[in-house]
Design a protein around this nucleic acid. Structure first.
Lengths: 168, 168
DNA sequence: ATTTGACCTCAAGGTTACTTGAGTTTCTAG
DNA sequence: CTAGAAACTCAAGTAACCTTGAGGTCAAAT
């Protein structure tokens, strides 16, 4: 580990292993993100990746997006305006984060609405197909295409009975 | 369309096309859900599926879960206690829906927390790695396995600039 | 100097959630 | 009764997001 002796020296470059540990992202995932152009690294003479510190922030912001269920293609767009070769200014960080904030708010409101609807329907025990908006959303539900749609991301463990495998 | 004349007769069985239209779920997806044991149907002499009405509710509840980003494997678990061969009682519906409600609440709280954190960090422009919880969640973030993780489900279109393809 | 662990690339595989297509059969309206 | 729409099965393909493996290189501690 290249940075283990100088944890907090300001301009220390981080190896991929360091970054993996700090961010909790697997090395293979970092490779993948690099392929997508979401992150970048300098290289040593021996072709090994060396990350400047601000890349960790970039990755962390990426993780925030992931936690929100934002697809990487959207992250790509949002990151397009962030410089890769120098530390972004606070102003630049703010601009990007603002997008996430907006998305967060939207999602929160949708969830609140769902909660209200579910409470209404289930509360009265009706679950009536005709009256219940939740069960008859009508709106764009049928418009959705195929492909995977997941987000256990935020780790709620629905049943709470430990019945879900710890995956793999 | 078998049910087009008797839209609201009580014990009418629905063809797969009917169900697809009512729920907004593609026929192929219904086949898929059946494979997973999430739904079931009676068959005609000619082997075509005929769904009892309550299956539509079951599917609708499944869709709610999907909207929440719950993976189908979790839905499977939750549905395990719902009878497939008869109309579930309101009590049974309630029990299952309660799980969703809990999940919703958890998710909402997480989002609220994220919002607070993001506001704090971005608001002051610091985005500091040491002080910011958002960028250093530490908690179980690294525990996540591979596989797809998406949820544009609720359709927020982050950038709002119509830059995202309408898929396919 | 050597060994051990970290790293590299590239191709292929895995998971979730479906869709698409081929070839065939069943239903229903005229 | 017959044509055309709708359904059936099964296999294979797709998309997002990574992981795993093979085969080889680099770097830091002994």
């Amino acid at each position: 580990m290249s940075a283990v002796m100088y944890e907090h020296s300001p301009d220390e470059l981080l190896s991929i292993g360091d970054v993996a540990q700090r961010t909790g992202v697997a090395r293979s995932a970092l490779h993948y993100y690099e392929q997508l152009g979401l992150i970048a690294a300098q290289r040593t003479v021996g072709n090994q990746r060396r990350y400047p510190r601000y890349m960790v922030r970039r990755i962390s912001l990426l993780l925030v997006a992931k936690r929100l269920g934002v697809p990487l293609s959207d992250v790509q767009e949002a990151f397009a305006s962030l410089p890769m070769d120098r530390k972004p200014t606070p102003r630049e960080w703010r601009r990007v984060s603002k997008v996430w904030r907006t998305s967060l708010e939207v999602r929160r409101r949708q969830i609140e609405r769902l909660e209200r609807e579910l409470t209404g329907c289930i509360g009265c025990g009706c679950l009536s197909m005709t009256a219940c908006q939740l069960l008859n959303p009508d709106d764009e539900l049928s418009e959705r295409g195929p492909g995977p749609q997941r987000l256990t991301e935020t780790g709620e463990r629905l049943t709470g009975k430990g019945s879900r495998q710890e995956r793999r």
